[in-house]
């Protein structure tokens, strides 16, 4: 029973973090650049929306504000990268570090603020005939992710979406095809960080009940871990784009479940979370490589056995 509860809690959390994973997928896989802005735009989304909610704004509208704030953060990184020609990783780090100060300013010089009015969660619990908060999160998370996957799938099928994919894959070709690659990079990072900030707002409203300046720490690693887990478990290269997006969402949920289960173990503490995360990422990244090496070794041994065994007289 305890096991099931843990999984439910993990899934509820994972679904909200999955929104961030979709954003990370756009920068990491579509644009082909690991964007560290995530670490700053995640708490940015949380901070902005919590401040708005506390000022009396509708919590659902606050989600939209968070998205827009994230877009702006992404635009900054995009411009640092494409106009100032700062390499993508460094551009992301710069925005991330700057956002730390910005976020604390947004929260009126505090490191965290608690939601003091109705959040989206409390409103949903009020409207829906469900009393279990975890299930409200799971239900809301599923609907939200389904909507986002559908919208992203449609978007990446449009002319602009295709142009963005081409930019990430082969920038020379994209320019030769008349694609404004700078704008595509900026737009892609805006979309990516918009989703990340949206996720921050969801997590603040449904999980933490507050916004914290430090809540983005390790977010990029969590995002990458989720993307990779989803890819390793559910899809190989040739799957359709929609399938990949779904795989990424599932990856985020599974990641949270693994973490939740790991924390149930007696010898692990909450502060071990980052270590576990790093181990999971290393494991997920190296799994395909190890699999290949193992297969190769097996082939080699078989080959040698054939050569040695078949003829009988090897190397006279």
């Amino acid at each position: 029973m305890n096991f099931l509860n843990t999984l439910q809690a993990g899934a509820a959390q994972g679904l909200w973090w999955a929104v961030m994973t979709l954003g990370v997928y756009i920068s990491y896989r579509v644009l082909d650049a690991a964007d560290l802005t995530v670490e700053g735009s995640f708490p940015l989304g949380a901070a902005v929306s919590v401040v708005c909610i506390n000022a009396g704004m509708n919590p659902f509208l606050a989600l939209l504000v968070a998205f827009v704030a994230g877009c702006l953060a992404g635009a900054v990184t995009g411009m640092l990268n494409t106009i100032c020609r700062i390499p993508p990783i460094l551009a992301g780090i710069l925005t991330m570090i700057a956002l730390y100060s910005v976020n604390i300013r947004i929260m009126s010089d505090r490191a965290s603020i608690t939601i003091a009015a109705d959040s989206a969660r409390t409103l949903l619990m009020h409207w829906l005939p469900i009393t279990n908060g975890t299930w409200v999160s799971i239900l809301g998370g599923i609907v939200t992710n389904a909507l986002l996957v559908a919208v992203l799938y449609l978007f990446f099928g449009t002319e602009i979406g295709c142009a963005m994919r081409a930019t990430g894959q082969n920038i020379h070709m994209a320019r030769a095809m008349g694609i404004h690659t700078r704008w595509m990079t900026i737009l892609g990072l805006m979309l990516s960080n918009g989703l990340v900030a949206l996720s921050g707002s969801f997590v603040a409203q449904f999980d933490y009940g507050s916004a914290m300046a430090t809540m983005g720490q390790g977010a990029i690693v969590i995002g990458l871990a989720s993307v990779i887990i989803g890819e390793v478990l559910f899809c190989h290269k040739d799957r359709s784009f929609a399938f990949k997006l779904i795989a990424v969402v599932l990856g985020a949920v599974i990641y949270r479940c693994i973490i939740a289960l790991a924390l149930q173990l007696d010898f692990l503490k909450a502060t071990d979370l980052k270590l576990i995360t790093a181990v999971i990422v290393v494991f997920a990244l190296s799994l395909p490589v190890l699999k290949k090496q193992f297969a190769q070794g097996k082939l080699r041994r078989e080959n040698e056995r054939k050569l040695n065994g078949g003829g009988g007289t090897e190397h006279a």
């Binding site: 449009t158 002319e159 602009i160 295709c162 095809m177 008349g178 694609i179």
Partner: peptide, 17 residues
């Protein structure tokens, strides 16, 4: 090919192909 077909055109939110 669809990317190439749009080389001379302005890209919008209509279908990429």
């Amino acid at each position: 090919l669809a990317l190439a077909y749009r080389r001379t055109k302005k890209r919008g939110l209509s279908w990429g192909i």
